[in-house]
Simulated scan of single mutants.
Amino acid sequence: MEPQFWYDIWTERKIGFHRSDIHPMLRNHWHSLGCEGLDVLVPLSGKTLDMRWLASEGHTVTGIELDQRAVDEFFQEWQCQPAVHSRSDGLADHHSGNIHLLVGDFFGFRPGGQFEAFYDRAALIAMPEAMRADYLRKLASLVAEGGVGLLITFEYPDSEMQGPPFPVRRPELDAQNWFRVKQLERQEVIGHYAHLREAGVTSLVETAYRLERTTEPAR
């Protein structure tokens, strides 16, 4: 899970995780979070169209992406020419309209303030279990107390594939102290993910959760 792994993923175009549509769970549940008008953080954003949807709903969106090609393709496909400037934390900000895509390491991101909303469809499940507590701690440090987010996870039989994406189950989410967790939707979706069927996965459960930042400090 070093950066080179993800650079290779984009070089070899192994991007079956990229959807050509807006995620239905985002459409189904985003407005139930009660975060209208808030700035939204999207960790490990890739070039997801979900950011364009969030922007169209009136949010200012900040995506963090490691690979420059994903950011370039996002704006090319959107037919936008972004302005680019360097930040004090070393990330490069590519922005057009109300979307900012920052190129660099998520763990090195140092914003000027905290976000009150976030969307994670592909970040937590991109990390093996040994990294996920550090990711959630970092995410919690970026989210204000009471801030809310939509988290989408996968579950599949452990023996059928070595991730990414990795399976993330409810007990693991309940064991952390930074976010209150509420399940919103749970569906068998293997029919929608051909690249995972081809990898040998026979059952794939996708779950949407509402996460709310607690008062527990992000250590």
Results as ranks from 00 to 15, higher is better:
Glu2Arg: 14
Gln4Asp: 15
Asp8Phe: 07
Ile9Phe: 01
Trp10Met: 05
Glu12Trp: 06
Lys14Met: 06
Ile15Pro: 00
Ile15Gln: 04
Gly16Leu: 11
His18Val: 08
Ser20Trp: 06
Pro24His: 10
Arg27Asp: 10
Asp39Glu: 08
Val40Leu: 12
Val42Arg: 02
Lys47Ala: 06
Asp50Thr: 01
Leu54Asn: 05
Ala55His: 08
His59Leu: 11
Gln68Asp: 07
Arg69Asp: 01
Ala70Asn: 01
Val71Asn: 00
Asp72Asn: 12
Glu73Ala: 11
Phe74Leu: 09
Pro82Leu: 05
Ala83Thr: 10
Ala92Trp: 01
His95Lys: 06
Gly97Cys: 06
Val103Ser: 03
Asp105Arg: 03
Phe109Lys: 11
Gly112Pro: 06
Phe118Thr: 06
Tyr119Gly: 05
Leu124Asp: 03
Met127Phe: 12
Asp134Cys: 04
Tyr135Asp: 09
Tyr135His: 09
Lys138Leu: 03
Leu142His: 02
Gly149Ala: 11
Ile152Cys: 09
Tyr156Gly: 02
Pro157Gln: 13
Asp158Glu: 15
Pro164Cys: 10
Phe166Pro: 01
Pro167Glu: 12
Val168His: 06
Arg170Cys: 09
Leu173Ile: 07
Trp178Gln: 05
Val181Asn: 09
Gln187Arg: 15
His192Glu: 14
Tyr193His: 15
Glu198Pro: 00
Ala199His: 07
Thr214Gly: 06
Pro217Trp: 10
